[in-house]
Design a binder for these strands. Sequence first.
DNA 1: GTCTATAGGGTGATAGAC
DNA 2: GTCTATCACCCTATAGAC
Lengths: 196, 196
Amino acid sequence: MGTREDIIAAAARIMRDEGYARATTKEIARAAGYSEAALYKHFRDKTEIFVSVLTERLPGLVPLLGDLQGRAGERAVRDNLVDVARTAIAFYAESFPLSASVFSSRQLLAAHRERLRELAPGSGPDRPLTALAAYLRAERDGGRVPAEVDPGAAAALLLGACFQQAFLVAFTGDRPDGDTLHDLAADLVGALVACW
Amino acid sequence: MGTREDIIAAAARIMRDEGYARATTKEIARAAGYSEAALYKHFRDKTEIFVSVLTERLPGLVPLLGDLQGRAGERAVRDNLVDVARTAIAFYAESFPLSASVFSSRQLLAAHRERLRELAPGSGPDRPLTALAAYLRAERDGGRVPAEVDPGAAAALLLGACFQQAFLVAFTGDRPDGDTLHDLAADLVGALVACW
DNA sequence: GTCTATAGGGTGATAGAC
DNA sequence: GTCTATCACCCTATAGAC
């Protein structure tokens, strides 16, 4: 692991555990085992460190969704959706505190938005939504989902619910155990596909 | 408007427009037209100002939901839900940047959570969810919603989707016009109640 | 209740040696 | 590439006069 990666890893850990406000260059440098000056040899400024954490360290929800689309038709749609919901809640719960920090300053928000578009076009926060909608469309074309279903709206309902549940988890601070998580995911999917 | 209200109003404006990081005591005092010292005559510390903004200035989504429950049966459930969705998206879009700021520091998050429970018990971020679920239960008891519907899950789907859409709006920075908002709300509700 | 002034501590970022 | 040392600034909170 190179210096740059050390720094990003340290920054990610501090931001997650202590909050963005505590993630000063001094703290990051100390945790990474380098001097503050070293930070500035690898990153233009502090914002660049933060944006790098966000774009390079977040675990992917998108990969799961991508796989899913290619395998449309292999398993029951309902089971696939429960998997998606479970993964999404866990993913959002982990990434929420970090993503939310972006809103602590307009400048930071703008920088992040800009950076995201420049180095990973089309991988913004709406990416999971479009990926899930594409999967549902594929299943619908395969006749395994009723023709009347609106893939975009259905994806928005399911992932939106996961997003908010994750917010609640992050806010209250207690993470649900595996069973609770599964039940929650199953209930949401159940309500969504009630009459499919 | 008293001094205290002036301060809260100024703080709210700065936090919304500039982000929490920019909302320093100096800025707030300047914008409110008072000295920094005056802030500390009305609030114990800066956290108390922030929490006051959050609990006293956010427009109410809950009132609408409360009214709704009392009037179950008067209008088509679907129309009521579209109203709820529209209001919820607007509400969440406005409050998201502020609420998100809570995550900038663990200490702030803890303080806010604590304060919320102490001065408005049961009005946490899950309040709209329980209120909407109660409304749906009332309609279900009245036979206007199928017996198989899970009110809690349905509420989580609809409000969750609104929450995430609001996040996307806040993230990209462009707010949708009234028509777009209405269409979005109608699509979400349509997908939810497709077979009710 | 409000002010001015300041304490006391942190901050991001840079210079220059190795 | 990394270090030590430091700058210039900004932050929250308080003291004391009016």
